[in-house]
């Protein structure tokens, strides 16, 4: 099976005053179509940088990022916007719904930027909201919903565009453990239905819900393998040293 996401020696450097911060330092991995991968790391490990690059919100300083075989690093802003629109479905920690729009309108936003006609947009957004169990609240505003429900709307929004990759950035971070579990179950269902899911988290207990874990530390990959292997969840620092040796 060909890889959908391919990182080859991806580096991302930031200049902060006189020092260069290496947020991502020669990161390489591949994600195949249909996988459920968790990218885990403490803050400052480079997972947010990875997420921004995978999400085509940012481009690497050096190295190659291929998304479905396309070199994202060479794209201009408009091409990046188009590829975000077509290939990626974002699920954010803070849901990031637009408060003035109804649930249905929120789900339609990416479809609108894709230029899909109104009738088809209505249909697809309705189906997506029904899939997450909110088919009876199409005309509600996000503020009328609980956190878990809002996150389900953002899942619906991510799904509606039928993206190649669903990118979830700390999707349970703002939720209590019960609703958090519901959201994770939903992601697992999406994976079971054949979607490629990339989950970014700092929480091992959430990461193990995935199939595979990529652990980052100080901008390096320190573990890449089965989520259920014991090394996947050992204390980061010790595991880091162990693998490095």
């Amino acid at each position: 099976m060909s890889s959908l996401i391919e990182f080859q020696n991806v580096c991302k450097y930031y200049q902060m005053g006189d020092t260069t911060v290496k947020a991502a330092d020669h990161i390489s991995f591949q994600v195949r179509k249909g996988e459920f991968v968790a990218i885990v790391g403490q803050s400052g490990s480079g997972k947010s940088t990875c997420m921004n690059i995978i999400g085509c919100l940012d481009v690497p300083t050096s190295g190659l990022y291929l998304l479905d075989g396309q070199d994202v690093g060479r794209m201009d802003k408009n091409q990046l916007a188009a590829i975000r629109n077509k290939m990626l479905g974002f699920i954010f920690q803070q849901y990031n719904l637009l408060p003035k729009l109804t649930l249905q309108e929120n789900v339609e936003v990416p479809l609108m930027y894709a230029g899909i006609p109104k009738a088809e947009r209505h249909e697809r957004s309705r189906i997506a909201l029904e899939m997450v169990g909110l088919g009876d609240k199409l005309r509600h505003k996000p503020m009328q919903l609980s956190g878990g429900q809002q996150q389900r709307v953002s899942i619906a929004r991510a799904l509606a565009g039928d993206p190649a990759v669903i990118l979830a950035d700390e999707p349970t971070g703002a939720l209590d453990s019960h609703t958090g579990r519901e959201v994770l179950t939903m992601l697992q269902q999406l994976h079971a239905a054949g979607n490629t899911v990339v989950l970014i988290t700092h929480d091992n207990s959430i990461a193990v819900q995935a199939q595979r874990i990529i652990r980052l530390e100080d901008g390096h990959v320190v573990y890449d393998g089965d989520a259920h292997a014991p090394e996947a969840v050992v204390t980061p620092n010790m595991a880091g040293r162990g693998i490095a040796k």
Binding site: G55, L57, K77, N78, A81, A82, R84, N85, K86, F90, N96, L97, L98, V109, P110, Y113, A114, R157, G161
Partner: peptide
């Protein structure tokens, strides 16, 4: 700003 960020993440071009 946040709305603009969301719209851009969801695929809005600068021109939009």
């Amino acid at each position: 700003t946040r709305e603009i960020g969301i719209r851009k993440a969801l695929g809005a071009r600068e021109s939009a």
